[in-house]
Design a protein around this nucleic acid. Structure first.
Length: 581
DNA sequence: AACTAATGAATCC
DNA sequence: TGGATTCCCTTAGT
């Protein structure tokens, strides 16, 4: 793959690449409809209410019902049944059994595009009992999940230090956030298995690297859509992490569940192994070491790596050798899920683990099992990141459906500054969700993360990618497209451009901000549609995107699935106060 | 349309 | 500590 400088939009979904000040404000009214649609959702089909929890505990009084069903035949007239008296019960027959709690009287699952929770289980969103996702207070659209500052408001001396020393360095004027909410292009089934990680090339602006569960490494130039390369021999199973060598753009380090760290020269494709934790091959699950967390300390030329048994390894980049002995940094036998070196002080390390902790370490004086600071979590911690510029904040993603933020790492870290309830449950079939900072956001507040639970958008269940203001917990935007009905657990924001890359199942998508012209066009289209509907004529198929490409096989371009009425799916929640532009 | 496989963490003994 | 069991809004395949 050659240098990529030409910016040709070959076969992109959206043409106009011109950026304009993005007006997020105009969404106001249709927003309402959306909400309307999502909340009232099942207006048409009335639930047969009752029968639910009211019927109480007992379950199996209905054997005889089943018996009764049989004679009356299939859709045998319930009327006659009711008439005949004793078989009246058949009218309520077809007993519902909840697939979650196995009791009768209610059913959990999708009803159209709306998922109905089992009322006997705690809320699937916030995990608290007493209500379901549909009525969860954290689901309220705009506030999507903040637990308002569990933080003490006392002004300690540390807070003073924070105010005087740190705040000055962080821009307090929030820059305008340009949300890449418009699907630009996609690469369907680029991978054979689900995507597990994404990384933008540090210098080549349009190059995206991706890894999957099989260990495949993909390189894709999303401007020259046809420029794709894959390496299938680098790893033999899950590619968990990728890091570029900051002193050599062409060199990529990869960490895998096969227990190896590899460096790959992206120009030549030549790779070499830096570490193999399973030199004797497979000798059973109790000995097989997997590598999830990895980061690069540029200052020291040091690669930090952690395995699934709780150990940290230090590798010298040049010598390609281990330094010292492995050090236990999480509960013995538990997986270390992520590592991150502080961008301002690379010797400060943040580790997250399956033992429900995130730890802060000073790599200059590593003592097994005695971190500098421990951050307790409710469940497995999927990831922990220092803020991208100052390194003064910490953002973690935990399987208890909470995103946690610590505002100042040298302050009181006993409890997080904020916990933000957000749906990103663990599911063994999904790549773990990780909230990621926006590297371009000087104020270090914006984070992006995919959402697990779906919302009903005009009759179709979609799983948006959420942009969250971590300083308030407010949902800044939810990004989605009616063609993408799968969950997007992997998301990465471009270090310089207003671009979002997302990995959803086996596909990869590129998103850009909706331009002024896009918005106008859409509005006009909407108007036209109203007109057509108003005049009673049927609308013919709506604007199909041009498929003008060569290279059919593994399809560039966005695939179609269910087609929904295409209204405004990429909804941007209006961000108040950032209208300057 | 209705099934299945793949397969990680919690829970229970 | 360790093995069996369970599971919850998955996805792509048959």
């Amino acid at each position: 793959m050659g240098p990529t400088t030409r910016a040709r939009f070959v076969h992109n979904r959206r043409r106009r690449g011109r950026r304009g000040p993005y007006a997020a404000e105009d969404a106001s009214d249709e927003e309402e409809d959306q909400q309307e649609a999502s909340s009232s959702s099942s207006s048409s089909d009335e639930e047969e209410e009752e029968a639910g929890e009211g019927s109480g505990g007992e379950v199996d009084d209905d054997e005889e019902e089943e018996a009764a069903v049989e004679p009356s035949g299939k859709e045998g007239s319930p009327v006659t049944a009711a008439r005949s008296g004793r078989k009246a019960s058949i009218t309520i027959s077809l007993k519902k059994v909840c697939k979650v709690c196995k009791s009768t009287g209610h059913e959990a699952g999708f009803k159209g595009a709306v998922y109905i929770d089992c009322p006997r289980k705690p809320c699937f969103l916030c995990k608290m009992p007493g209500h379901t996702t549909l009525t969860c207070p954290h689901r309220v659209a705009m506030e999507h999940g903040v637990i308002p500052a569990s933080r003490r408001n006392t002004n300690t001396s540390l807070d003073y230090v924070f105010q005087s020393q740190v705040k000055g360095k962080i821009s307090m004027v929030k820059p305008q956030v340009l949300i890449p909410n418009q699907l630009e292009c996609g690469n369907i089934k680029f991978h054979q298995r689900r995507v597990t990680c994404l990384e933008f090339h540090p210098t080549k602006n349009n190059v995206l690297l991706s890894g999957d569960k099989k260990g495949l490494l993909g390189i894709w130039d999303y401007v020259k859509l046809h420029e794709k390369t894959t390496y299938d021999s680098v790893h033999s199973c899950i590619l968990n992490s990728m890091k570029f060598d900051t002193s050599n753009d062409g060199l990529l380090y990869t960490a895998s569940s096969d227990g190896t760290i590899c460096s790959t020269d992206l120009e030549t494709g030549i790779g070499s192994s830096l570490l193999n934790l399973n030199p004797n091959g497979w000798t059973g699950p109790s000995t097989w070491r997997m590598i999830y967390g990895m980061d690069f300390n540029a200052e020291k030329g040091l690669l930090l790596v952690a395995d699934s048994f709780g150990f940290l390894y230090l590798l010298d980049r040049r010598l390609k050798t281990r330094i010292g002995h492995p050090i236990l940094i999480h509960k013995k036998g538990s997986k270390v899920t992520s590592l991150h070196c502080n961008p301002a002080q690379p010797e400060i390390l943040l580790s997250s683990g399956n033992d429900h902790y995130a730890h802060i370490w000073d790599t200059r004086k590593l003592e097994p099992s005695s971190p500098f600071v421990s951050l307790a979590h409710g469940r497995v911690v999927n990831s922990g990141y220092f803020s991208p510029r100052s390194g003064n904040k910490i953002l973690t993603t935990c399987q208890d459906n909470r995103i946690r933020v610590w505002d100042y790492i040298f302050g009181n870290l006993e409890s997080p500054s904020r916990e933000i309830v957000h749906s990103h449950d663990f599911n063994r079939h999904l790549t773990p969700f990780k909230a990621e900072w926006d590297p371009k956001d000087y104020s270090e507040t914006v984070a992006v993360i995919g959402r697990y639970i779906s919302e009903n958008y005009n009759g179709i269940a979609l799983h948006p990618i959420d942009f969250i203001d971590t300083s308030t917990g407010k949902l800044l935007a939810e990004v989605m497209d009616p063609d993408i009905t799968t969950i997007s657990p992997v998301n990465k924001l471009h270090p310089r451009d207003d671009i979002l890359a997302s990995g959803s199942s086996r596909s990869i998508f590129i998103w850009k901000p909706k331009t002024e012209t896009d918005a106008t066009e859409e509005r006009n289209k909407e108007k036209a549609k109203e007109f057509v509907y108003g005049s009673g004529s049927r609308k013919k198929s709506n604007g199909k995107h041009d498929n003008s490409s060569d290279d059919d096989s593994d399809g560039n371009s966005v695939g179609k699935k269910k087609k929904a009425k295409k209204t405004r799916f990429t909804r941007t929640v209006k961000g108040k106060g950032k209208s300057k532009a």
